[in-house]
Amino acid sequence: MAQNTDNILSPENVVYRKPKLMNDVQMHYCPGCSHGVVHKLVAEVIEEMGLEEKSVGVSPVGCAVFAYRYIDIDWQEAAHGRAPAVATAIKRLWPDRLVFTYQGDGDLACIGTAESVHALNRGENITIIFINNAIYGMTGGQMAPTTLVGQKTSTCPYGRQPELHGYPLKITEMAAMLEGTCYVTRQSVETVGAVSKAKKAIRKAFEASMAGKGSSLVEIVSTCNSGWKLTPSQANKWMTENMFKFYPKGDLKDTTGEK
C-alpha cells in the first residue's frame, strides 16, 4: 500500500524553507562557514518584517563582500572599514529605510574602528552586524584585533602574545558603554538554539533601528575553519571551548523598552 505523503510534506512539517529573499546563487563561502547561516537569518527577518522594498545593506571588503549576490535587497559597497559612514549617509537621506552594515572583525574592529565607534556613539539609527571569527579570513588568515591570546595565525605563528601584539579587542563591550547605542548583544549560530536566539537579536536590532531608538550592534561569534585549519565540527568545538570564554554570549545593553 502506497504511503500518503500529503501530510508529511505539508508546510507545517517542512523543517527548512529557503527565504524568498535568498537568491539561487551558489555561495563562495567555505564549507562550515557561519556567514551562510547569518545571511539566511537576515533574509528571514527582513521578509517577516515586510521590509523587502525598504532595506539597504552595506557590505565592505571582506569575506562578505559578495553579500549582494545572495540577499535580494538593495546593497551598497563600501571601502574597507567604512560601512558605518556609508550607512549613516543612507539612513539620514532615507530615514524610512532599514539600513544595516554587515562587517567582519578585521574590517570593523581594525580598519574601520573609528567609523564604527563614532557612528555608534552618535546614535545613528542603523544596525551593525558584526561577524567575529578572530581572524582575517579573506586575505590569508592573519591576526585580527579579536584574535585570542595564544591563538595562532599566519602573522603570529607562535600564538598571540600580549607583550608583543597587545590584547584582543572587545568591541561589543566598548559599544555597550556608548551613549548612542540602544541594543548591543553577542550571539552565535553553531546550534539550533543559538540560531534561534541570533535571529531574535537581529529582529530586535532592526526594529529598534526603524523606531529611531539609536544604534544597535549584533555580534555573531563565528568560526573560520579554513583560517583556523580545522574541520567544521572541530571549529565549532574550538569556538565553544575558547571563544565563548573571552567573548561571553548574551545581551550587554538593551534600552529599547525604555520610554
Rank of each mutant, 00 (worst) to 15 (best):
S55I: 08
S55F: 06
S55H: 07
S55D: 04
V56M: 05
G57T: 00
V58I: 13
V58P: 08
S59P: 00
S59E: 09
P60E: 04
P60F: 01
V61C: 10
G62R: 00
C63Q: 06
A64E: 04
A64Q: 03
V65P: 01
F66K: 05
R69T: 04
R69I: 00
R69Q: 13
R69H: 09
Y70T: 07
I71H: 08
I71V: 13
I71D: 05
I71Q: 08
D72T: 02
I73P: 00
I73L: 04
D74M: 07
D74Y: 03
W75K: 04
W75A: 03
Q76A: 05
E77P: 01
E77L: 06
A79Q: 02
H80M: 02
H80K: 02
G81L: 01
G81E: 00
R82P: 01
R82M: 12
R82A: 12
A83R: 10
A83G: 13
P84H: 04
A87I: 07
A87P: 09
A87N: 11
A87C: 09
A87W: 05
T88L: 13
A89D: 12
A89P: 08
K91H: 14
K91F: 08
K91S: 13
K91N: 14
L93K: 11
P95W: 14
R97L: 15
R97H: 15
R97Q: 14
L98R: 15
F100M: 10
T101L: 07
Q103T: 11
G104A: 08
D105T: 09
G106T: 00
D107H: 02
L108C: 08
L108G: 01
A109V: 14
G112S: 03
G112F: 06
G112V: 04
A114M: 09
A114W: 00
E115L: 02
E115Q: 12
E115D: 15
E115C: 09
E115F: 09
S116F: 15
S116W: 13
V117T: 12
V117P: 01
V117F: 13
H118W: 13
A119Y: 05
A119C: 14
L120W: 06
L120N: 05
L120S: 03
